[in-house]
Amino acid sequence: MKKQTSAQQGQVKVSRLPSRRQIFRCWELYVFLLAPVVLIFLFGYVPMYGIQLAFKDFKAGLSIAEQPWVGLKHFKRLANLPNLKRLVVNTVRISLFSAIFTFPFPIFLALLLDETRSRKFGKLVQSVTYFPHLISLVVVMSLFRVLCNPRSGLINIIIRMLGGGAIDFFAEPDWVTPIWIISSIWQNTGYGAIVYVAALAGVDQEQIDAARVDGCSRFMVTRYIKLPAIMPTIITMEILHLGQLFSVGADKMLLITNNMNIAKSDILSVYVYQVGLVQGQFGFGTAVGLVNMAVNILCLLVANGLARKYSETSLF
């Protein structure tokens, strides 16, 4: 998400519609845009038309337009859902806690990388810490399952060596959020650090040198020059997180959730999948998805407003 507007501002204001000649002169560009326009129409806009299913009962054999209207039936059912509170609380808990606990690590790593005098070592650390980001979620969660296995997992072996009792992490509801957060930290710290490393590279070297001559220790330079210098980036990143408060990915949770930990691993996106695609309740599933999306957009708008107010970047 970058400053999209700066590029457009350079454009000359066109007060009249473009002439046929102008359009014809660019015919090749329209050919270039044909495939994207069609693809986005088919898979972006046509599904939007299908949102009406949220207000309809789905019967096989009928087209979307022919399905019978049922008004707010699905929304009423959602509002009276015994699990609704649990779904919302679980979703918010995971996104909130993961935003709070994961954000310091990339900043810390980036500051360390900027501080070390050994270039080669820094490069090595950056390469290795970035790598987990490239591994698929399926494999990362397999890795965590293997390490957390109550009998043979490394973590439980260590716990037993220290005299503790084995814990079946994936069977305990209370471990759902920690597993989520720790795996995110493990997978994304090196990736997240890149943005801050780039921001730190832009810190005024003369200012640092001057501070050093005036007797500042390296730690003081970090604390009073570098950290404030990357503060705008940190604030922007945090605000952007806020925009995703209710969009916790089903892809990762489907790899963690099971019958034993469902009390805390039941989240909105997984519920839409379960009720919609697995159980085939298309109308109700669409309604839940629609509510989730509406809340997401609301969060995004709030986050964008905050970003406009408190930082230089905004989404749109």
């Binding site: 999209q4 994207p36 326009v37 986005i40 088919l42 898979f43 972006g44 806009y45 046509v46 599904p47 939007m48 038309y49 299908g50 949102i51 299913l53 979307i64 839409v272 999948y273 919609g276 695609l277 298309f282 599933g285 669409t286 998805g289 629609l290 989730n292 999306m293 957009i297 995004l300 749109f316």
Partner: peptide, 18 residues
Amino acid sequence: YFMITMYFGGGLIPTYLQ
């Protein structure tokens, strides 16, 4: 036209049906 679909879409089930 393109950017609208970055923030707004039909969601899982309408996409599946399409």
